[in-house]
Structures are given as C-alpha cells and as structure tokens.
Design a protein around this nucleic acid. Structure first.
Lengths: 189, 189
DNA sequence: CGGCTTATTGATCCGACTCAACGTTAGTGG
DNA sequence: CCACTAACGTTGAGTCGGATCAATAAGCCG
C-alpha cells in the first residue's frame, strides 16, 4: 500500500481483508507495529512529517478505500465532526499503542501470545466476524516479530496451548477453543 | 495532574518542568508510557473514551496550562488550522510510540538505556536546554519501568557506561560525556 | 542522629534466544 | 498430475542476558 519514505497523500481505509504495518529500525530491522482488519484506518502517522515512516502491506486479497488528504481537509471544513472523528481514531490508535507497550514491556512470552490472540478475536467480533476463527494470513514470523520474541518461542507456546486444549492450530488457521482460560493466561495471577 | 478514570475535560500543555505519564495494567502493575518536558501536550488519549485511561504525574515543580476540551472545540471552529495542529501533535505521538515499541521489542538492555538517554537529550536540546545535562528528576525505578527492565539492570548499565567514560551519574543528575559513542550504543553493529 | 527511601553491588537462576536439524506445505514447471 | 523446491513451521539442545533475591551503601529529611 505504501512504503517508508513515500510522500503522504492519502488516508487508507480497509474495506475487506487484512493489512500489516511495520517500520524499519535504524539498524535495518523490521518491527511490525500492527495488524489491521476491515473498517480500520491507516496512514495517520504521516500527517506531521508529510511522508510515511512506516509501511503497510496487505496480507491477503484486500480491498482498500483511499481518501486524498487534501480532499479530507476540504471535506472537514464542510462536514462538522469529521475532524473530530479523525481525532477519535488517532486517540484510539494511541490507546492501542499503549496496550502494545505494556505487552512488550511487562509481559512474558506466554502472556503476550494469549493477549495477542484475544485482541485479534475481539476486533474481529466487533466487526461481526466469528470470534474464535482467526483466519488472517499471518506467518509465525510476523506474529513473533510483532510480539517481540523469537519465532521458535511462538511455535512452542502454540504447542503448549494446544496441549492444554486452548487453541487448535493448523498452520495459519487458528481456532480458539476456550476464550475464558485463554483470558486467564494474559496476566499473572 | 490526572488519574486513571478521571473524566476527560481539559488538554494539558507543559509550561515548565517535567511530567511522566503511565497506565495501570489489568493485573495492577504500572507501565510508564512517557516522560514529557516543557512545550509538550498531554491528555490526548482520552478523546474517544471521554475518560483518561492513563495518569500524569509531575516529577518536579512544574507549571501547566489547561485548556478545556469544549473550549478547544469552539476555538477550532473559528481558528482554522487549530484542529490540524492537533492532528499533527497526535501524529507525532504515534510516531514516538512506534519508536518506543521498537525499543521494547527489539533492543537489548544496553541499547535501550543509550537510546533513552539520547532521546531525552534531543528533546531538551530542541527546547534550548543543555543537551548533555539531564536534570529531570527521574528515579532509577521510573527509568527501568519505562524501558521494560529491572532497576538493578539500569544501575549496572549506568555503571558500565560510567567506566567507559560515556556518562557521569550522581544519583539523579546525569551528564552525557560522549554523545557520539553513546549513539553507537543505541544499535547493534 | 535515626529512620526511610533510593541506589548499588553480588550471587544465583530461569525464560527465552540462538543454532541446528528436520518435517510439512504450497507453489512451480516439466 | 506429479516431482521438485523453497518457504514455512516444528522440535531439541545448549547458552546467555537479564530477572530475582539478598545484602549493603548512600542520600534525604524530620
């Protein structure tokens, strides 16, 4: 969709499908900053700098709606509440980022994966997709990158969760079998 | 300044001094999400929820300017560019959060501390304070919490940096002696 | 001075990373 | 349609960074 350094021209809204956003670190590594599903809005981090410092990649066949930012600014002068809506969306993004910081700063590997699975589940449910069926096309490597851990660790924990009957994984198809017990895994007692 | 759960009424701008923001995790722990110096704006994460899910605490004698959000909305209808300015500020905050995510997700303890010190240094310099004199009143425990590591580890790394002549610490007075070599510590070769 | 909080240092331990090998799947072209 | 291959996923062994636990020092303030 866009890459690091691209000039900021349009705001993106996901109509269907799923998208990951990532940034390049100064030493050339990639950090995935988010997975996004239908209904979510992307590209807002570039408003100040006028150019994207992150990139967004579709993870499956995905339909996108692009709104030129200039057009948005025009519209927002005639439609009251539109800019406010935008503030809300960004405020939400900040909130979401804060959650991710807690996850990265304070949680163990197991807590991270459990939190992550439930987070996706919630967001899918909010948009009327089945909450226990996570069919976003994300690799183990994407997940591990996002959660700040090694790919192998993600595998091992999926294995453990499966033994405990919490989830069933079949490669990239993930089914959540016990949301309540998974919830318990998201935090220390 | 405000606490978790407080109704969202005003936006805060720091006139002088320094402030830390933090959130409570679901299992009762605290994660510090930012340190802020004069000129920065706080409280924007509460626009959507109408109530703060974070809290802000002054770390020293600090002067604050409060702008009621309702007043802000009125003003933004008469002053063009004001809401846009706000979008910019939030866009910046998102950017900053992304950096922090990389820090928490990808960097070693040493890289974290070095990155952190230089980050503060940059921001002080931008506001015409000396760049090598970090006199914000932050405890080791605040720093370690923010960086997602143990207090003891922060101490040890300060010790190491001091041996190498990179910094001089005297309790909460921190002096950066070699910005260039410190910069080198912020990333893997 | 004496009690309290904060900082430092040491010893030990464990969770998660790394490295390595192997199994599995999807995608490719013959 | 099947064989081949490259990418992805899983599993095991060994190591290490940083957490934890514990004791001690250094400021801070009444």
């Amino acid at each position: 969709m866009y890459r690091t350094g691209d000039t900021f021209r349009v705001i993106y809204a996901i109509r269907s499908g799923s998208v990951k956003t990532s940034i390049l670190t100064d030493d050339g590594k990639v950090q995935i900053t988010g997975f996004h599903v239908a209904g979510e809005v992307l590209g807002l981090d570039a408003i100040t700098a006028k150019r994207h410092n992150s990139e967004a990649t579709a993870m499956e066949a995905t339909s996108i709606c692009e709104v030129p930012f200039e057009r948005f600014k025009e519209l927002s002068e005639t439609i009251p509440g539109l800019q406010y809506k935008m503030l809300e969306i960004m405020s939400n993004e900040i909130l979401h980022n804060h959650e991710l910081m807690v996850l990265l700063g304070k949680k163990s590997a197991e807590e991270r994966l459990a939190t992550y699975l439930l987070n996706i589940s919630d967001r899918l449910e909010k948009r009327n997709f089945p909450a226990t069926q996570l069919d976003m096309n994300m690799s183990r490597s994407d997940i591990s990158n996002y959660l700040g851990m090694a790919e192998e660790t993600v595998c091992r924990i999926f294995g453990r969760f499966q033994e405990e009957g919490l989830v069933t994984t079949q490669r990239r198809k993930i089914v959540l079998n016990d949301l309540a017990r998974l919830k318990a895994k998201t935090r220390r007692n």
